[in-house]
């Protein structure tokens, strides 16, 4: 875990809506903070090395790229094997996130979550079947919760 100082925080506040779309974005941030561009770049590199920044990147809207079938697949598997199974599911190329999460019994028995994304219902079904094959013999029950709408997608926000 990285201790952020006041300038790191200012850089986060200035870029949490996005990086400036200008030829020299790091220079522009440097001007706004009255520090050198080298320092801005050094701080970004350091935050990236420490994992505070996963990466600097574009985040697409799944639907607009044609991925209309975004399913949260949830599985009830034995706790004793969930880590081993989670690693196997995570290795499937179409799984974008995979987590172990707590059950909320009796209504919510699922402890393994894997997100899938497909352009057609048939592709989604194939992917879900593949996850099921990987978990073969360990699944007590499962469900797929498709997203029907993005209500918000801003990412982390910190107060300035």
């Amino acid at each position: 875990m990285m201790e952020l100082d006041v300038i790191d925080r200012q850089l986060i506040v200035l870029t949490q809506n996005g990086l400036p779309l200008t030829d020299q974005p790091y220079h522009q941030l440097a001007e706004q903070l009255a520090i050198s561009a080298d320092e801005v770049m050094q701080r970004f590199r350091s935050m990236q090395d420490q994992g505070v920044i996963r990466r600097i990147a574009a985040v697409p809207n799944h639907y607009k790229l044609g991925y209309g079938f975004n399913g949260m697949t949830v599985w009830d598997v034995e706790d004793a094997v969930v880590d081993q199974l989670g690693e196997l599911v995570a290795a499937l190329p179409f799984v974008s996130h995979c987590y172990q999460r707590p059950r909320h019994l009796p209504d919510w028995p699922y402890n393994l979550f894997a997100m899938i994304h497909a352009k057609t219902a048939a592709d989604a079904d194939t992917q879900i079947l593949r996850v099921g094959e990987v978990l073969e013999g360990h699944v007590r029950s499962h469900q797929v919760l498709y997203s029907s709408r993005i209500l918000k997608k801003t990412g982390l926000r910190i107060a300035s």
Binding site: M1, T15, G18, G51, A57, V59, N61, K64
Partner: peptide, 18 residues
Amino acid sequence: SGVLSRFGPLFHAEQMGG
């Protein structure tokens, strides 16, 4: 046009101590 939700640093709350 919203094809991209955003472009910039993707921050990781836990690595910031959050």
